[in-house]
Design a binder for these strands. Structure first.
Lengths: 124, 124
DNA sequence: ATATCATCTGGAGTGCACTCTAAGTCAAGA
DNA sequence: TCTTGACTTAGAGTGCACTCCAGATGATAT
């Protein structure tokens, strides 16, 4: 699979795919004899994981560290588990923050709804 | 209220408070005769709102635009409502993304849990 | 009055995550 | 074979949201 195909498949730019590989967010990608990237399904799996984690806002650093541990072998399984647990906790906190902010927005929107009906803006 | 008190109260650095005011994320803050910032409760309300929206990851641009509309008067109420609705939709999408990523992380963590018990890592 | 600490402004610097550029190599069709 | 378009690298540039700095002024305690 070429880089342009992978780019389209996951909605990640070619530049970003090369960048991710360069800094270790994904492991080195398989190449053709002439040096062109030729993504295997496994390579694609790493791209998809990176895209998933990034879309949730997790930092590239956490991904590079995870990839590093995976490449080091089974002895790092407890460390990998701990790393993922930490990122999950970060997301759980972010989830609550977003929920609170959404409620806040919904309240303000409802005030504007009423204001547009009655012509009077009543606040907080 | 001094800037250092507001900084402590909301966990936002003094530099950031000045920056937010400068670019219009909050309206101009009341000053003492000698030019020092002297936050009223209303000023604090804007700071708190900015902190809330930022903690959820909304861009400063949306906040400056909202503040600009508020300062323009009641005619902008429909625009303000629309703006908040748009930000709420962005958060709703982000919420789903985070939930999906958390499920993904939970699955991987459960695989590692099993691997640490049985000594065998079974994937996807 | 003086020393010390907080605050002020304008502008420069930082970190993150891309994103673009230049100059070169590779591959497929006419 | 030639041309066109995709791909390669290293390195520079961008946008966002701060964050820091220098030099000046204000406020407070001795």
């Amino acid at each position: 699979m070429t880089i342009s195909e992978v780019s389209k498949r996951y909605g990640i730019s070619q530049d970003t795919l090369r960048y991710y590989e360069r800094i270790g967010v994904i492991p080195p990608v398989h190449r053709t004899k002439s040096g062109l990237r030729d993504y295997t399904e496994e390579d694609c799996g790493w791209v998809e994981l990176a895209g998933c984690m990034r879309s949730a806002g997790l930092p590239l650093e956490a991904l590079t560290e995870y990839v590093r541990l995976c490449r080091e072998g089974d002895l790092t399984i407890p460390d990998r588990r701990k790393l993922l647990l930490k990122q999950k906790d970060i997301l759980a906190r972010q989830l609550r923050t977003i929920q609170e902010t959404m409620e806040r927005l919904e309240y303000k929107i409802s005030c504007y709804d009423r204001a547009m009906e009655t012509g009077t803006l009543i606040w907080d």
